[in-house]
Write a protein that binds this DNA or RNA. Sequence first.
DNA 1: CGAAGATTGTTGTCGAGGTCAACAATGTCG
DNA 2: CGACATTGTTGACCTCGACAACAATCTTCG
Lengths: 182, 182
Amino acid sequence: MPPVKRAPTPGKKAGRAKAASNTASKAATLPLRKSSQLRRVSPAVIDLGELNNHLGYFVRRIQVWIFQDFIRRLARIDISPAQFSVLVIIGANEGLSQSELAGTLGIERARLVRMLHLLDRRGLTERLPSTADGRRHALRLTRAGQAHLKQAKALAAQHEVNLLPKLGAERYRMLLDALREV
Amino acid sequence: MPPVKRAPTPGKKAGRAKAASNTASKAATLPLRKSSQLRRVSPAVIDLGELNNHLGYFVRRIQVWIFQDFIRRLARIDISPAQFSVLVIIGANEGLSQSELAGTLGIERARLVRMLHLLDRRGLTERLPSTADGRRHALRLTRAGQAHLKQAKALAAQHEVNLLPKLGAERYRMLLDALREV
DNA sequence: CGAAGATTGTTGTCGAGGTCAACAATGTCG
DNA sequence: CGACATTGTTGACCTCGACAACAATCTTCG
């Protein structure tokens, strides 16, 4: 489909130019236009309405926010939050199976398989055949994996400390305690 | 690629049957095997290790958990968490622009465009040309959109109430208050 | 023992979302 | 007017969760 002229918005949307007494805006951000007469316009600060009563909304926002910082901080050693959790659990429970790992982290077995493919290829983890059960794989960290995890933990701890000032030490503590019990 | 024999795991993984003194397991779940001698094996209850000190991990878990309930509850009217937030904001701020909407919700303008395509097609929202600025679109809910949002809010409120017992009323309140200020 | 059933690891396929780059149309400002 | 910024849009790519289908391997129980 060839790029049409500024999106025809397939369908209606013809005339109609009434409404919208509360016009538009620009602010809401940083520049702080020096032009005295701030273009009139809308809320500038937008109302979250009903969302203010939904825990899910705020949890989502903070989750995204925290992950972004985490990702940025561990980008150097190329470890994602998911990979980090996998390495940590394997490190703390050598020999566990993929099923158990997936179960405790709440991810699909299928998802974990592909994740381990990567980590294996990178030489960080290995899947040894379980001596007791032919179906299982005993997961372990390689030497390199242990070293890598060590670095990851250091950076992650650093990331964690970084959250304190942004959340407030007391609030941070409270959140961590409260969430851990769920 | 034809399905090989139980995943050759491209690469090494030959012999090697040593290690893994702490064998494997099965439990960790429900059955509670009646067979007295519980197959020896690993932790049964797996150690989260370092993850216990990472707020991000718990926030992520609870976020996924909350969203699952939300999705399940609003499946009937086919509204996702993201769509819900979009409808709520438009409803509370008629005439705002896509940029503003995307900004306040923390999603990409590009992402929002496709979301609005859907909502438009479903007749829930409409994009009126802004009279003051030729580039902008003044977003609004259609009559149908308002009605749909009303239902969504009812179900969402129901979902929210459902979280109380599972989190504990006090904890719920605390979390909501704490997160709202971030 | 042997057949039915459950587990485990795997692959394939969808669909929702996030990320980036590139654009045309439109506004703003010096 | 011309340089620059915004806004809405599209295209392409990639991650991730959810499902379905399998082969290999236990487990159970008649």
